[in-house]
Simulated assay, not measured.
Amino acid sequence: MLRATDRLRAVVDGSIAALPVPAGDSRETERLTTALAAGEPVDDEVALVVATSGSTGVPKGAMHTAATLAASAAATQERLGGPGGWLLALPAHHIAGLQVLLRCLRAGFTPTVIDVGGGFDPAALVAALDRVDGPRRYTSLVPTQLVKVLDDPSAVAALREVDAILVGGAATPAPLQARAVDAGLPIVRTYGMSETGGGCVYDGIPLPGVRIRLDAPVDGVGRVALSGPMVALGYRNRPDHPAFAQPGEFLTDDLGRVDDGVLSIVGRADEAITSGGLTVVPQVVEAAVLADPTVAECAVVGLPDERLGEKVVAVVVAAKGAEVRADSVQSAVRERLDRIAVPREVVVVDALPLRGPGKVDRAALRARFA
């Protein structure tokens, strides 16, 4: 850990250029180092090339400088109320986990780390939080971890005492957010990605220096473009990528709207389902499904259908001690959305497959159930 900390400090001051890879996963390490040309020359400004967790399966490397990383850390610290120590409970090679470490080191504290290589155990948070150094204490979780925390009273009690819990990596469902707030947890919903140095919009409000633009909006909804001092220079060896066509701006694949200065993400442009000639946004359906209290987690995908082209399918994880009924889930959607959005099938699984820091692997679900 000491050697890793020294290298991370070198990333913070820009004296090296690093490509983080997962410890103990030689196959993924080979994939990343090959795709992102590890060992080949890189611009002198670059301090970090961090792999994206995009849905295409082809990794892209967002190139960050010491200045973009410093801007992200400073904006986060300002929004959260001051410097503090951080607890890492995420994989350290993704941007969310990396930023936990980098923010903590920049603030002058040594990070506290939980090993999640074998899975996340919320009970491990209790002892670990006692070791966090600093005048304030912070941690970062993904929604699937928050679900487990809320089922563990000791973890809930410990996390009530921290100053902020950043929750990101994937959208936080409204019922899960309500449960966390009711439990007294100081959660902060974050939105961002590798290309923006991690979360740069907290609870829908951009961090200091961040600007939001909606590209080609229709009825107030458009692709979200983010700009600010923490935006990456671009992608490794892909200088003409259209996502960075505007200098200092990153054009996401997320669809969003801004109401009274608050950003809401309504879905992704590349995940829409075309069913019977009509467009269905999976995330909108998922929000309706999660209104059923028997459902803890949900992913909606489109599967091939001879008549409709694609049919809407809800893949769900049952809430603790509950039994999911397909007709109840379908009723929850029918009450809130157009009939074309009602899932034709409801499939119950023990856990949703994930990619990156807490994002549902929809491609894996489509392959499994097609």
Rank of each mutant, 00 (worst) to 15 (best):
G276K: 07
V181M: 11
G199M: 12
D44Y: 02
F244M: 09
R368E: 14
R325H: 10
T139V: 02
G358E: 05
L19T: 06
V300W: 07
A171F: 07
W86S: 14
H241L: 10
D305H: 13
A318H: 08
L226C: 03
T294M: 08
F120T: 00
W86N: 15
P135E: 03
G24F: 05
R355T: 02
R344V: 00
T196P: 05
V231F: 11
A272K: 00
I212P: 13
I114Y: 08
R179M: 14
G321S: 07
A74R: 00
A326I: 00
G169F: 01
V100L: 12
R307D: 11
S264I: 00
R137N: 09
R257V: 08
G209C: 01
G321H: 06
P186N: 11
F250M: 08
L303T: 06
G24N: 09
T144F: 15
E78R: 08
A92Q: 09
L87K: 07
L141D: 07
D338R: 15
A245D: 01
G204W: 04
V210I: 08
L101M: 10
A70R: 05
T76A: 15
A269S: 14
G118S: 15
A155H: 10
R339K: 15
R103V: 00
A351Y: 09
T29E: 02
V210Q: 09
R106A: 15
G97S: 10
K320N: 13
A243S: 12
Y138K: 02
L278A: 12
V281E: 15
D25T: 01
V181Y: 10
Q330Y: 04
S53I: 03
R268D: 14
T172P: 13
V58W: 13
G198Q: 04
Q177M: 13
F244V: 13
V258T: 00
L69F: 00
T112L: 09
A272H: 15
T29N: 15
V210W: 03
G192W: 12
Q77I: 11
A351L: 00
G168F: 06
R355P: 03
V349A: 06
G197R: 10
L90C: 11
C298L: 04
A128Q: 12
A296K: 12
Q246C: 02
R31S: 07
Q330L: 01
V46K: 12
D43H: 02
R339I: 11
G118I: 09
V46D: 01
G39A: 00
P304K: 02
S264E: 09
E78V: 02
L159N: 01
A367I: 07
T52S: 15
F244H: 10
P135Q: 05
L19E: 03
A351M: 03
A164K: 05
V156W: 11
I212F: 06
V258A: 05
V21D: 10
D13P: 13
V285D: 00
D260E: 14
T196N: 12
G24Y: 02
L90Q: 10
M230E: 14
V58C: 02
E161D: 11
I273V: 09
L159F: 01
V315A: 14
P353Y: 01
A71I: 04
L263I: 08
L141R: 08
P242T: 04
V12A: 11
D361R: 04
V11W: 04
G54Q: 04
P83S: 10
V231C: 14
V285N: 11
L365H: 03
A128T: 13
G199P: 03
P304I: 01
V46Q: 06
G256R: 07
F244L: 08
